[in-house]
Design a protein around this nucleic acid. Structure first.
Lengths: 270, 270
DNA sequence: ATCTGTGAATGGTTTCACAGCT
DNA sequence: AGCTGTGAAACCATTCACAGAT
């Protein structure tokens, strides 16, 4: 049960900063679009705009990869596409398994963006026996029992977890035991993995909550009142010694914020 | 065409750092789980483990909210749940519209995590007339024509875009014109929005590409060869003056990396 | 004249380590 | 004794501004 490493402690990765790595796919996408329109070269300014960043950042980012531009001219589109693809490891193909074929899993299986870069969906796996054999996105779903075999046989090293939260850790453990070393997790749970395994998390409800935070601020500033928008100010930290008997404060319109079962599966696998 | 602002330039938000805001939902989830198990108090250490961060970070984060703990004891679970909910704006409810009801849109509509905190799916919108009226997750899909009316009538300020990339900017413009000020974008495009509108992006293929980057590094280090794993070293930056006639380098096994239509819709709305 | 590549400056985030309260 | 709250230090990321290449 190793303590979950998650973010890669910069193992001296020949220096490319994590923040830069996270933007390379953005540049790649913008470049691919240019390439399709047969644009031969771009300036840092143009490319930055297309990718939604500023040009200084882009140039700094590229400087970690090497000197791939031409002063006074810009960057050769095809050449850059290749260099970034190579840096990201997209010149080889990556078989991927998706575990948990509910709505979300099906959406992922159908997602064109996977196939379009080196990623290939090697298998779809679900715990529901009734799903077994049914094709999703042209690929027959296989039962969880086959998980280990599928991974070894296909040499899969990347797994996508799209199961309900309750099943995620268990699935994760099996994936890791079978040899998976990178996991993309859509279930709303913190996964524990041994050292050397990378986990990235995509969490829909967290993103919304962050938006709500800013949204609330906007609403507050609008009226001029710098603090609370509506509703009474909550009780001060009265240093409670035990759990308060009732509810903590005056939560306003809080008629049952709690969902049907706590933190909730992303999507049912059945 | 305003240049797309995206990340909130820290408008003196009473100081809470963006990185902290992004972690509050994590803490909230861990606290909710504790609350359900009727745990009265937690130490920063325990809570940090449950949330997947370290305790120093957690304490720093909480210190921006106020002094909600008790030295020598820890934090009162219920009280903290309330304080963080309030800070995130989750004590009020947020009507949300989802535009683009393909596999992904349907998955989102069914996602329990939305409903479980203040978020309420106010409407599902799709461009396909054949979808109109069909219930998804118990909510009838409405046609894009109704978009503006739906938003104004329901006072919606948060919109989720789950359309193909090609439609996203257009949908975004209409959402913004109708009064939406926060957008969660699942389409693989950079959205341009006027100042004051927040956009957050969830991009499945980018996450996978980041994993591939690290995966590649692991494979390389394993064999001891610090540089290229397999395949010839690519051509040096020969300062090409125009686009090279053929392909740039020696992309190895690159039998058609390009997908059927470029960067590809997330999921078909039809 | 133009546009890249990069040191130096700035700003934000994480970690350390300990003072201060219970 | 135990655990929070927080300055100070260390680290990472972004932006500035300009030297250097074409």
């Amino acid at each position: 049960m190793a303590t979950g490493r998650t973010h890669r402690p910069a193992t001296r990765s020949r220096g490319i900063p994590e923040a830069t790595v996270a933007r390379l796919p953005l540049y790649l996408r913008a470049l691919t679009a240019l390439s399709e329109r047969s644009v031969p070269t771009v300036s840092s300014e143009e490319l930055a705009t297309a990718a939604g960043v500023n040009s200084a950042k882009l140039r700094k980012d590229f400087s970690y990869l090497g000197s791939y531009g031409t002063r006074g001219v810009g960057y050769d589109v095809e050449y850059l596409v290749y260099q970034i693809s190579r840096e990201l490891g997209l010149t080889q193909d990556w078989p991927v398994v998706i575990v948990g074929i509910g709505n979300l899993g099906a959406a992922l299986a159908n997602y064109g963006g996977f196939a379009s870069r080196g990623f290939r969906v090697a298998a779809l796996i679900d715990a529901d026996p009734a799903m077994a054999g049914k094709p999703v996105a042209g690929i027959p779903v296989q039962h969880t029992d086959e998980l280990e075999k599928i991974i070894t046989d296909n040499g899969v090293s990347i797994g996508v977890i799209a199961t309900p939260a309750g099943a995620a850790q268990q699935v994760c453990d099996r994936l890791v035991a079978a040899g998976i070393t990178s996991i993309l997790n859509f279930a709303p749970t913190v996964l524990s993995v041994p050292d050397g395994v990378d986990v990235r998390k995509v969490d829909l409800s967290i993103e919304l909550q962050i938006l709500a935070f800013h949204e609330q601020r906007k609403a507050g500033e609008e009226v001029g009142a710098p603090e609370e928008a509506a509703g009474a100010v909550p009780p001060p930290p009265v240093t409670p010694h035990r759990a308060p008997s009732g509810a903590p404060g005056a939560p306003g319109a809080d008629s049952g914020r709690q969902g049907p079962d706590g933190d909730v599966p992303a999507v049912m696998p059945a």
